[in-house]
Amino acid sequence: MRLAVGGGTISHHRGAGPADIKLLFPRPSMVNAMFAGTGNPIPTKGFNRISWLKGPFTQITDRLTHHLRHTPELLADPDYARVNTTLTLHLAAYSMAEIGNRDPIGRRIAAGMPDGDIQLAVRDDAALILRARGGRLSVHEGVSPTRRATMVFADLDSAGAVLRGEVATYTALGRGDIEPSGYVPLLDKMNKLLGLVPRYLA
């Protein structure tokens, strides 16, 4: 994968391609070590830009950690809660796709998913698409005009409470904080994938 940095934005792109800095991770544990600040990758290109990894890149990842490792005190700030919930929604969606494509149990679940788009959204806010095609999953930004199922959270507070595990899904459903609709088998398989996410994320 590649990160394109410029003009005050960062975008993610799948696959290899031209890059100014190239980092090699011979083992998966080296990726975790880099983000934990306990190890380094092997640079194969862009040696003169390594200082960027130790400076701005580290600052960005530290900020990401700040927003994802919440505390009750931090969540009391509405701006912090908004960023935390938005990041958590993205994290959950992309994690489900990776688990469905790579985890042995996840692959079996994804293989049984009918083709179609599941719209994941917070009303009047963030919107993501979990797309199933031929047993493979991908995530896309925005609203799907051909969605077969939807799971819409009433607001950011409701989404955050469910995604952080503070409120059970069934409780949120009973209160009307989540509105599922559409093709039930897709939603059922998605929920099974969502249940596997905590195995990988602490």
Rank of each mutant, 00 (worst) to 15 (best):
G174I: 03
H13V: 13
H90T: 01
A16W: 04
D125G: 05
M96W: 05
G17K: 08
G116S: 10
Y94P: 00
D117P: 01
M30W: 11
N101Q: 11
R69I: 06
I10W: 10
V5F: 13
R131G: 00
P145H: 07
G17V: 15
L201K: 08
G174M: 10
L23D: 09
T71Q: 07
K45T: 10
R102W: 08
I21N: 02
V143T: 13
A97N: 11
R2W: 05
A172F: 06
A159C: 15
A33L: 06
T71S: 15
L68Y: 01
N32G: 12
T88W: 02
P114G: 02
A81L: 13
H12I: 15
N84F: 08
A161V: 07
A93S: 14
T85E: 01
R69S: 09
P145E: 07
I109C: 03
S138G: 11
R27N: 03
G37F: 05
R123Q: 13
D20Q: 12
T169Q: 07
K22V: 15
V122W: 01
G112N: 15
G15C: 10
Y94N: 10
I109A: 00
F47K: 08
L201Y: 04
M1N: 12
G165A: 05
T71V: 12
K189E: 02
L201I: 14
E98Y: 11
I105W: 00
I105V: 14
T9K: 10
Y80H: 14
H13T: 12
A127V: 00
S11F: 07
E73F: 02
T171W: 00
F57H: 14
V83D: 03
A149W: 08
T38I: 13
V167E: 09
T146F: 01
D177G: 08
A110T: 13
F47W: 14
F25D: 06
P56W: 05
I60Q: 14
D115S: 03
L75Y: 09
M113K: 12
